[in-house]
């Protein structure tokens, strides 16, 4: 594991890059507003954040903090109301559906909480899907590396309904990695898994960062999951409020308590 024992002091600068060099994804002054006029709600209210290349970052926050919205906007699944989003050097604003699709296909990998695989395809076919729809041949060596990392070699011919939840999620991770995307977005990847299966999946994501300098951004509400990451960014009320470097589960839990308390207090005072 790649973790420091020392507890870093909470930083107030959220644009600093994580270990490694360069920025894999960046949000700048991002606002996302739902509804219009008096009924409008800002899910994201001026979020600026850099996600360093080759780092494993967790995005956390209470329900309604905007963490899922942020991920959807970063991952080219949703558009922002204002501000800029970059994947590598590419700014998403102004891209059409075709270009966004191509971007997702070539630069981004996805792992969702549930319903992650196409049920009619085998594990191998699912893993190769992003490449084959792009009409590309998988790099054999890289494919083998990914398969061995997730430990699924004997399950490649199985269909999703013949696999356990953990196995399915590992297949999904393999699929996200096989096209060597610039960023992998994981949306509560362990949300449906028991602790043993969660550990497998998280360990695998960690390894992909350590061994292959993969960039992974994960939305989670689980402090244990967050403890696998290099950095945790906390969101509340559509803003970045804090971050932790090399967090432990206890650090994260502590921070979450503070945030929840503040959010409850804020809600009360607002009324």
């Amino acid at each position: 594991m790649f973790k420091s024992a020392s507890k870093p002091s909470p930083s107030t600068s959220y644009t600093a890059t994580a270990p490694g060099s360069g920025v894999a994804a960046r949000a700048f002054e991002v606002r996302k507003v739902y509804g219009e006029g008096d009924a409008s709600v800002a899910a994201l209210d001026g979020v600026s954040i850099d996600f360093g290349a080759g780092a494993f970052t967790a995005v956390m926050g209470p329900s309604g903090s905007g963490k899922s919205t942020l991920m959807h906007c970063m991952a080219a699944l949703d558009t922002v109301s204002a501000g800029q989003v970059f994947i590598g050097d590419i700014e998403l604003a102004g891209l059409g559906d075709k270009q966004l699709t191509k971007l997702r296909r070539d630069k981004i990998g996805f792992v969702f909480q549930a319903y992650n695989l196409v049920p009619t395809l085998t594990a191998q076919e699912n893993i190769e899907l992003p490449l084959s729809i792009a009409g590309r041949k998988p790099d054999r060596q890289w494919f083998d590396t990914v398969i061995d990392t997730v430990g699924l070699r004997d399950r490649l011919g199985h269909r999703p309904n013949q696999l356990s939840g953990g196995q399915q999620q590992r297949v999904a991770c393999a699929r996200a990695l096989v096209s060597r995307p610039d960023v992998v977005f994981a949306d509560e990847p362990t949300g449906n898994l028991d602790s043993a299966a969660s550990a497998e999946v998280l360990a695998f994501l960690r390894r992909s960062v350590d061994d292959h300098r993969q960039t992974v951004i994960m939305v989670t509400h689980d402090p244990v999951a967050a403890s696998y990451t290099d950095r945790v960014v906390f969101l509340a009320d559509g803003r970045v409020v804090d971050e932790l470097r090399n967090p432990t589960a206890d650090d994260v839990l502590e921070e979450m308590k503070v945030l929840s308390a503040r959010s409850v207090a804020g809600t009360d005072s607002g009324r």
Binding site: K98, T101, Y115, I133
Partner: peptide, 16 residues
Amino acid sequence: TREVGLLRAIGVSRRQ
């Protein structure tokens, strides 16, 4: 619907 969404998310174009 969800499967279609998944396919679109991982890069299947509208045309495909």
